[in-house]
Amino acid sequence: MKKLLFLSAALMLAASTFGQAKKPTIMVVPSDRYCIEKGYVIKFNNQGTTIELPDYKKLLQNDSDMRLAISKISGIMSDREFPLKDLEQELRNMSNESAETSLLTGSLGGSVVESPIDALKRTAKADIIMDLDVSIEKQGPKNSIRFILNGIDAYTSKNIASSTGVGSPSTSASIGLLIEEAVLSHMDEFAGRLQAHFDDMFNNGREVKIMVKLFDGFDSNLEEEYEYNGESEALGTFIEDWMDDNTMNHRYSLSDATENFQRYEQVRIPLYYERNGRQRAMDTRTYVNNLKKFLSDEFKLDSKVYMRGLGEAWLIIGEK
């Protein structure tokens, strides 16, 4: 009996120490084309050129067809135990956060620090954007729905899952009903492709972009020779070696490099890392922080990690 208890305790401990990959957040966002066609746009003048940006808030307050489509997709994804981030709530949260940040003061009267970059970064984010476009096609008295759903990986800007098609024409069904039918028709195909993307991620790691840059005060460059492990090589070569050692199946691509920068694309980072004997979910920041630590420990170089979106990080060498 004691043995059995010990065994179950050991199994529970093992289960608790085994981590899970960071679950990607997904959000349905109406396509720019839809917003422009329906007139839900904010126009502004950018040095003589009129720029039109989608006004999601206005759209969600007025367009019941799009709200129906988003709600239907959210329901189906929740049913698959993958609840979506709600765009409307996210926009509301952001405006509240902005107001709270400007009003919040400490006991000594200090206000919350926010740089222009921090304010710029305060946008609705998700790991995967489901870009939804719906348009009505008319053939005489018949209406049909052209449905386009693209899953964009915010880490790489790649289209990772899609489902498109034109529904069968109908004279009697309402537009709302046709949209609902289109969503029901396409979601299984979309989910199947999303599953294939997740399978690839588990097998080959998460794909991210990494840029290595230099601060102008840095008195060396990436082609300068450094000593490491008894070898004398350019700093850039040692960084590339680190990348090779720390990517899943050594998968990365150094797409461009000079003495001042290196651009790594299709970098497959592992989904987990171990800390204090426990597995934790790895993200781009943690991964690039490891490179920062490597440069600091082995070459005594200061560097700064700058996150540019969810799946892109810059490591800028020369200053903290």
């Binding site: 098609g165 034109v166 529904g167 195909e189």
Partner: peptide, 13 residues
């Protein structure tokens, strides 16, 4: 046929 429904993937891959 005629766009009446999109393809449905197999449940077991």
């Amino acid at each position: 046929s005629n766009g009446s429904a999109a393809p449905t993937p197999a449940i077991i891959k």
